[in-house]
Structures are given as structure tokens and as C-alpha cells.
């Protein structure tokens, strides 16, 4: 049995990684739950955001927070364009998965073309900064990512819960013709939501640039676990996505500390399998 300090540290790093999972799952969960589109390209967009943050920082000395200011509106537009294409071709839930798989491969190739397949590391002065709480270290950047995830999840929840647009989106997801009969403009709101989830990918990307070592194949590393998080959290449920992210993050890092790092994937996927079989109606 590992020491208490080690367990505590595992808990902290699990929570922080989990926040990033939740951040990535947020946009996926929104477009899947409310637009019935499974956007695999979400991961590629996030990684593209990371590379852009890296490039702006390294080549033009743009600080990351300013880079986010550029990336978010640009990605919002990308999201809107993507949804325009989807609605024009009447892409269904299943074909959306295939189309966005194609997009992911294209984006992966683009990233590899510009930045090669080599590992890239964005060195910043605060990369290693961390808070100390007793014997535990809390890395600052990961804490910021986790807090951002919390803020965005709560904000999105309030947006869906209390505003007209949010209610209209939920109504359309449940019964599009009926919502339309009550005057809901699903198209405009779909564009908005698609833009928002792409922007979330951009924000997640900026944090990935600061925290992780970048390589084009990283796109695929996230797919499995973030899908699991989005489903466990309940589609179109922002707070659920966050909590599921934290749960998976913690259970993974505890498995790493107590059993062995290589067994970690078993936890999230077993949780997903059990959930799908026990409560298939959730999504």
C-alpha cells in the first residue's frame, strides 16, 4: 500500500487531469446531446488550438492568454462553418461520426505537415510553478485548467437552464418539429452551439499546449477516455461531464498509484461498460 502522501498526490493530480477531461468532454457532450452530431473532430480542433498557441508563443512571443483571445473567435467561426456544412448535407447522427473522422485525419495531416511528427514542448516560465499545500504539490497551470473547466461547466449549465436560447436548444433536441412549430429557430441556435463547442475546444487546446508535450498522434490518445466521460456524465449535461471527468481522472490516477500505470484504462472503460449495460436509457 503506498503512503498517504502518495495517495493524496494521486488524488490531486487525478482531480486536475479530470478537469481537463471534463473540459474536453464539454463541447463533445453539447453537440452530441443537443444537435445529435457526434463530433470526432473536436479532438483534432483541440490539438490544433494547442499547436496554434504554441506557434504564436514561440514564433511571435504572443502570451497564451492573448493567443486564446485570437483562437476562441476563430474557432467559433470554424464551428459555425462546420455546422453549416452538416445542415446543408443533412448529416445524421451516424454519418456525422464518419464525416468528422475524415476531418480529423485531414487536420492531423495538416498539423503534421506544418509541425512534423516530432514532439514539441512549449516552455513557459510558469510551466513548473506550483502551490504547496502541506506535503502536496498543486501545479498552477493544471489548477487553472481545472478551474476553467468548472467555470465553463457551471456557466454552460446556467446558459442552458435559464436563457431562452438554452431552453430552445433543449426543446429542439427533444422534438425538433414540435419546437419548430413553437417558433424555435433551430438552425440559428445550432450554428451558435456548434460555434460555442468549437470555441471550447480552442480553450482546452491552449491548456493542452501549456501542460502537455505535443505530437499529432495525441489526437487519438484522448478519444476513448473523453467519449467515456461524455457518456458517463450524460449527454448535454455540462456539470455531469465535469463530474464524470473528475471521477475518471481520480480513479485513473488512484489505479496508477495503487496498482500499476498500465492498468489505468481499465477503470474508465469498465465504468462505461457497466453504465451502458445497466442504464442504457440515460443518453
Amino acid at each position: 500500500m503506498p503512503s498517504l502522501t502518495l495517495l493524496g498526490q494521486a488524488l490531486v493530480s487525478g482531480l486536475l487531469t479530470g478537469g481537463l477531461y471534463g473540459l474536453l468532454a464539454l463541447g463533445l457532450s453539447l453537440s452530441w446531446g443537443l444537435l445529435r452530431l457526434v463530433n470526432l473532430a473536436h479532438f483534432a480542433l483541440a490539438l490544433l488550438g494547442a499547436y496554434l498557441t504554441y506557434q504564436l508563443g514561440v514564433a511571435f512571443h504572443v502570451p497564451p492568454w492573448l493567443a486564446v483571445g485570437v483562437i476562441v473567435p476563430a474557432f467559433f467561426l470554424v464551428g459555425v462553418l462546420l455546422h453549416l456544412v452538416f445542415t446543408y448535407f443533412r448529416v445524421t447522427e451516424f454519418t456525422s461520426l464518419l464525416v468528422t473522422f475524415g476531418l480529423t485525419v485531414i487536420l492531423e495531416s495538416v498539423i503534421q505537415w506544418f509541425w512534423t511528427a516530432d514532439f514539441r514542448r512549449y516552455e513557459t516560465p510558469y510551466a513548473t510553478a506550483s502551490l504547496r499545500a502541506g506535503p502536496l504539490f498543486v501545479p498552477l497551470l493544471e489548477l487553472a485548467a481545472c478551474l476553467t473547466a468548472v467555470v465553463l461547466a457551471l456557466g454552460t449549465w446556467a446558459w442552458l437552464r435559464f436563457t431562452y436560447v438554452g431552453k430552445a436548444l433543449r426543446a429542439s433536441a427533444e422534438d425538433p418539429p414540435m419546437a419548430a412549430a413553437f417558433g424555435v429557430n433551430h438552425r440559428a441556435q445550432g450554428l451558435l452551439l456548434s460555434g460555442v463547442s468549437a470555441a471550447y475546444a480552442g480553450i482546452a487546446g491552449a491548456f493542452i499546449a501549456l501542460i502537455a508535450t505535443l505530437a499529432p498522434a495525441q489526437i487519438w490518445a484522448w478519444v476513448g477516455v473523453v467519449f467515456a466521460v461524455a457518456i458517463i456524465g450524460g449527454l448535454a449535461n455540462p456539470v455531469g461531464a465535469l463530474l464524470a471527468g473528475l471521477f475518471i481522472g481520480v480513479s485513473e490516477s488512484l489505479t496508477m498509484a495503487v496498482v500499476a500505470p498500465a492498468w489505468a484504462p481499465l477503470v474508465s472503460f469498465s465504468a462505461l461498460i457497466v453504465l451502458l449495460i445497466a442504464r442504457p436509457g440515460r443518453t
Binding site: G224, I231, L272, L276
Partner: peptide, 19 residues
């Protein structure tokens, strides 16, 4: 499981692959 269709079956089988 009666309601397990479509993309949920897909994800379940993907999860089984990882396990």
C-alpha cells in the same frame, strides 16, 4: 438490453476493445 442501439452499441464495443 432493449434500448442499447446505435451509437451506444458502437461505443460499448469500442470500450471492450480498450479493456
Amino acid at each position: 438490453v432493449r434500448r442499447l442501439r446505435g451509437e451506444l452499441f458502437g461505443l460499448l464495443t469500442l470500450a471492450i476493445t480498450f479493456v
